[in-house]
Design a protein around this nucleic acid. Structure first.
Lengths: 231, 231
DNA sequence: TCAAAAGTGTTCCAATTACACCCATGT
DNA sequence: ACATGGGTGTAATTGGAACACTTTTGA
């Protein structure tokens, strides 16, 4: 490309990732205790600059991969933050993405080597720049989206029980649901396939392990499933 | 700011605006027949580059104002498009915004002077670059949002009738609603205030003109109103 | 045999749907 | 007086919320 636009204001573009995980109890985020400048010693989201000839999504997935070792992760663009002064070093437009990962799939050593830790949403430390706002917005979007689309599954292992799924939804919406109604509702979507196996870890009655019915999942994803009526 | 990041890839950032209007019959977009390069003679969204020391929202509002003369318009960030090759002249990251305006409020002469025309969504000409995708995404977002939040009003004059409002919703969702149920549902939100006036333009029975109850509007906006149950 | 968690069923209420009828207005 | 569009009412259906009982399992 030889001919360029005459307009002169070119800026840094970065990507920040809001990485959600679920440990069976709480919703968590993978955040970094920075051992590099700027804001060394403070907490931040994982981020990085966009490279030349790199699409936005590709850049975001690269950054996620650098921290977790994961590929093929559910990831969605959230919002672009472009306040002039948001980064005190130099103006940077940040395109944020949120990712839903199965917490046990990620490369814990790699994360550790980058100084990344899983922090509960409830006890999240203050984050640098506008990263706190990004997290708030991501949670809101997750609630929005998960009420209408079956994306919660992305946070669970391949095989999971209905009580596990319920604990996840309760964590997402900070709200308790009726066990019996929840079960009936989720089964009525026909999205779950009985694996025939049971959760052997349980101390009491062993719950049935289900997996996603991939075919129906694809079909129903863009159809609306009013799963959570109010939140 | 003297110290800068060492990273070298700085890119152009642009804003494109998807401007919705409603003429009482159809949902329309304000688009430009380009009399400038690149892609002269083709149709595109209104857009422009982000200036130095200009926030994203400010830039978007400036661009909207340049075309319509309007301020204080409902505008929401939609999505950021950053494919490397999306603009053949030079890599440009575009942050798109959609706006909802009352079509009769805008400065028609100004729009005309910029070669802008209202085009029905149904008969929209092909747009340059990825602008067609932007429009599709904006419509989807509008449907999403208008089902849960009372934003449709932004497209109507200050005083409007329930049948007008219904025609608007029918245009947004390309779907017919039952007149009686629609009326009951919208009135049950308590969002409308009877002005005491009637729509004198009507040839038959003159419908009651309502206006938004601003107080309730503010309150209920962030509460969920499940206005359209399925679409 | 008891406590804890999981699975299944039933009733009740509220909200949505599908309808029908009456009113106002200009031609 | 009639055609057109606007306003209001009601019965039937559905889906959600609330709640009780039984089963499995380890201690």
């Amino acid at each position: 490309m030889l001919l360029k636009y005459p307009h002169s204001n070119r800026v840094l573009v970065a990507t920040d990732c809001i990485i959600f995980g679920f440990d069976g109890e709480e919703l968590k985020l993978l955040v970094i205790k920075r051992n590099f400048e700027p804001e060394q010693g403070k907490w931040s989201l994982m981020g990085g600059f966009l490279n030349e000839n790199e699409d936005l999504e590709v850049g975001a997935k690269r950054i996620l991969h650098e921290l977790t070792g994961l590929e093929n992760v559910y990831m969605e663009q959230l919002h672009t933050f472009g306040e002039v002064k948001r980064d005190p070093v130099e103006r940077t437009v940040s395109v944020s993405f949120y990712a839903l990962i199965n917490i046990s799939d990620h490369d814990a050593e790699l994360a550790r080597s980058k100084n990344a830790y899983w922090q509960s949403l409830e006890t999240m430390p203050d984050l640098i720049f506008d990263h706190g706002r990004m997290v708030q917005m991501a949670l809101q979007r997750l609630r929005y989206k998960a009420a209408l689309h079956p994306i919660g599954f992305e946070l669970l292992p391949e095989k999971f029980t209905i009580p596990q799924l319920q604990r996840l939804y309760e964590a997402i919406y900070s709200q308790a649901f009726d066990r019996r109604n929840f079960s009936r509702k989720i089964l009525s979507t026909k999205l779950l396939k009985d694996t025939g196996e049971k959760n052997e870890q349980s101390l009491t009655k062993k719950a049935i392990l289900y997996r996603l019915d991939q075919e129906r999942y694809q079909k129903q994803f863009n159809a609306f499933i009013h799963f959570i009526s109010d939140f």
